[in-house]
Design a protein around this nucleic acid. Sequence first.
DNA 1: CCAAAAGTGTTGACTGTACACCCATGT
DNA 2: ACATGGGTGTACAGTCAACACTTTTGG
Lengths: 223, 223
Amino acid sequence: MKTHQGYVPGITVDITVFTIKDGALHVLLIERASPPYKKHLALPGGFLFFHETAEGAARRILKDKAGVKNIYLEQLYSFDSVDRDPRGRIISISFFALVAEDAVEVTEGRTTESPRWHRVSALSKLAFDHARIVAYAEKRIASKLEYTNAAYALLPRFFSLGQLHAMYEAALSKKIDKRNFIKKFLSLKLIRPTKKILSGLRQRPARLYEFVSRKPTELKKFF
Amino acid sequence: MKTHQGYVPGITVDITVFTIKDGALHVLLIERASPPYKKHLALPGGFLFFHETAEGAARRILKDKAGVKNIYLEQLYSFDSVDRDPRGRIISISFFALVAEDAVEVTEGRTTESPRWHRVSALSKLAFDHARIVAYAEKRIASKLEYTNAAYALLPRFFSLGQLHAMYEAALSKKIDKRNFIKKFLSLKLIRPTKKILSGLRQRPARLYEFVSRKPTELKKFF
DNA sequence: CCAAAAGTGTTGACTGTACACCCATGT
DNA sequence: ACATGGGTGTACAGTCAACACTTTTGG
């Protein structure tokens, strides 16, 4: 096989990164500094190098733009409408990612193109077909939380059952009965109690739990 | 946007077409006439034109190579290992398809490259990373049959409950209790009885059913 | 003592699963 | 008459859903 340099033409990678912040689902967006769609909000993304996979490119882009660590990342869908990019025929291999809020270095400085969190329920117009991509990713988050242990990526290493519960309510945008939820979740054996106790708040201290495994794992059935 | 002619470089489309035949899951494969992987079995596929979407290319290829009609088709995954194709950096946008056996014109003539059905449980080595693609598609068939009405694509327009049951057992490769299966399936209201009766066999005649809708539909829960 | 979240069980409804026999027809 | 798949019901077990009060701490 021949060796190449530079970028693969005609293919980009775009990543929809979700987190839970202030009790609501947020997505990471940049503001485009150059045309097309200058000043529009867009998903972080870019072209891929000849020597890297699409997932590799996604991880590189997230690391460079946002210093992300401990991310849950998987391929989402390839968007390929003929006219989705005014520059020509460009196909986007999109990715779906979950992170804890504090795993992203959101530089609040005025660097344009620096990523920031945006509430999914109140997005302005996005560049390209990125609104469609985000909508597609939103559909996936529920199934990931319901059929896998992906929740570990949205939470700190140690967390209380209350945090876990609040996170599910925010991500699925619905009320969930706390007793039933905790009963069900504990029966799955995905998490275990630790000896840590979170105190210092003006309330009863909470026992902290951790995920038994912080690797992607599929379940038969969840809840 | 500029107009282009010819093929998009660096991207192919490959389709995993499944059917149920002789009580077992089969996949449609061609024998490659030219290198690389000459004489190996491979998924039907090809490059896409500048003016068509990947799904459009998939439908065109299936129509040209196998005269397929009434197909259930959806994007599966994009395979992008750096070394998956000896000709260079070529990414495959793969598709997943379900058809009734008789919806494909399998020309039994000796034309090489003409598609034929192969039992999934006994595949020989495939070209490229097509074995991985087929394995990935196999994982999807169960969820499609369990969470959507995709079964319509694997059956003739009118079918007996016995055929439906046998088809599910073949596709999921497991025994399913017939009474429970039928009870559950009927409760979903996806199918309705017709006035047609299948007789002429040396057995009790069967009432024929049809799908209420033959468009892809998602269900909350299936079975 | 007050505010705030932690923590904890029971009951009734529903759903899934296991299981076996008679029926209608063609040969 | 027999071989073949068609067609049907019940009982038990397990899971889901609804529901509210007491506890522990910090201020």
